[in-house]
Design a protein around this nucleic acid. Structure first.
Lengths: 119, 119
DNA sequence: CCGAATCCTTTAGGATACTG
DNA sequence: CAGTATCCTAAAGGATTCGG
């Protein structure tokens, strides 16, 4: 019985959340309100139907997101976060906060460079 | 003055830590001990010199990792985590733990499927 | 409204050989 | 020992078109 290597732990998690706009999709659904396909589309600037569909299928596959089809004309499909998906909340928040701090730091560094260049 | 969109916060962070073995490199250096190039190579199964170099350069660029060259023959270079790099610790831990839990869940699900297939 | 199917471009990652 | 330099493949992302 082989212990799962450290490497895989990261890979498992990152495979789940990595993708150009996957984190944002999860983040939007973590707000609690179910969202329809075209609502998500509007909230994700310039995303193609293909990519949105792909991301949602992947998230559905891993039971992060629940897909509910209302059999009516015109069709209506709602996506919402699952209980399991909510377990990603801390990670997303951590990523979000670090990103903000990082951007700030970059900005400061840039200003410092501009400062010292004129010395 | 435009507010940084939510999307970018995730992108900033993920750009920093995403890569097939980047998280593991950070994780290894977070242990505290500086590591030499070939030590890292040994600790990262099957990584090529090229990829290790690339990852390290990227991390150095973002000041996550500090590179120290000892001018001697044969050459000696040590890589260590920076104070700033340590701020990634929580994120890495969170990813690590979720990955472990996720793997466990997957395993349970698989067992359940095998169970119900024989009903 | 919510997709599937097809085709195309870009990038990440790797194999291999060479060097101060 | 610690890298560079080339070349190559697979996968991610995207543009566009079609359909129930």
């Amino acid at each position: 019985m082989q212990k799962t290597p450290v490497q895989c732990q990261f890979a498992e998690t990152l495979d789940t959340i990595v993708g150009k706009r996957k984190p944002q999709i999860i983040y939007l659904l973590l707000q609690g309100e179910p969202l329809r396909f075209n609502e998500l589309r509007r909230l994700l600037p310039n995303i193609t139907q293909r990519m949105l569909t792909l991301y949602l299928r992947e998230l559905e596959e891993e039971e992060i997101v629940k897909r509910v089809v209302y059999p009516q004309i015109p069709p209506k499909v709602e996506y919402s976060i699952t209980e399991y998906g909510k377990s990603l909340s801390q990670i997303l928040e951590a990523l979000h906060q670090w990103g903000a701090a990082h951007a700030e730091r970059k900005q400061l560094k840039k200003e410092n460079n501009e400062q010292t260049e004129t010395d």
